[in-house]
Simulated scan of single mutants.
Amino acid sequence: MKKFIISLFVMISGVLFSQVSVGASPESTNRWTFGGGIGVGFGSQSAFYLQASPRVGYRLTNDLEGGVVGSVSWQTSDYYRSTMFGVGPFLNYYIARTFYLSANYQHYFINYKHKYYDYKTNAEEDALYLGGGYMQRIGNNSFMQIGLMYNVLWKENESIFSTGLVPSIGFVVGL
């Protein structure tokens, strides 16, 4: 199942990016946007983290965009292994194509297994990320986004996440 979902995300991303690059120009009347981010992390006890988050948006106005973002992540260490899938809507407001404000709701499905205690659990959690950041143009209508988001639904000792603060780096094509 995991291999199928990973393959599906890769194929969708490839198709979307290839369709955007054909004939895309700053004067384009196409209002669809595509993008996403990738994350990799390493830590103690052989910890490894891999995350991908493809997104599809639609420019409601020149400065306002709404859409859907998905996320999938895998974490493993000497002690545990987890898989997490998330999906939800987002809304971005762009300020002079240099800065952006963002709201992103995600509903997560989590599968967690502790390797030594034979403990397994499936859980769900909601997150509402609010924040913003800086945008750097990398092409005619392509941008890299660097920002900081905060999950306003995060509660210490009740969340699977260790903090509500989340740095973000991503790319968007079609603005």
Rank of each mutant, 00 (worst) to 15 (best):
A52C: 12
G57L: 00
P54I: 09
N92P: 07
G43P: 02
G41V: 02
N104M: 10
D126N: 14
G57Q: 01
V166S: 12
F161Y: 10
Q45N: 14
F34C: 09
P54M: 06
L130Q: 02
M149T: 07
T76C: 02
K115P: 06
S102R: 11
L130M: 09
F99C: 02
Q145M: 14
M84I: 10
L101F: 11
A103Q: 05
Y134L: 12
G66L: 14
G35Q: 01
A123Q: 10
G88Q: 05
Y100M: 06
T33D: 10
D78N: 14
T76Y: 01
F143L: 03
G88K: 02
K113T: 10
M11L: 15
W74P: 10
G14E: 01
F9T: 04
S21T: 13
A127V: 03
I110A: 10
L50P: 08
E158L: 03
N104V: 07
Y105A: 13
R31C: 04
V69C: 06
V15P: 08
S53H: 11
Q51S: 13
Y80M: 08
Y105I: 12
Y108V: 10
A24F: 00
W74G: 15
N122W: 04
S25T: 12
D126M: 03
S53K: 09
V40L: 15
V69W: 01
Y100Q: 06
L148E: 03
G39I: 07
Q45R: 11
A47P: 01
R97G: 06
V15M: 11
I169D: 09
Y58H: 01
Y100L: 04
S71P: 04
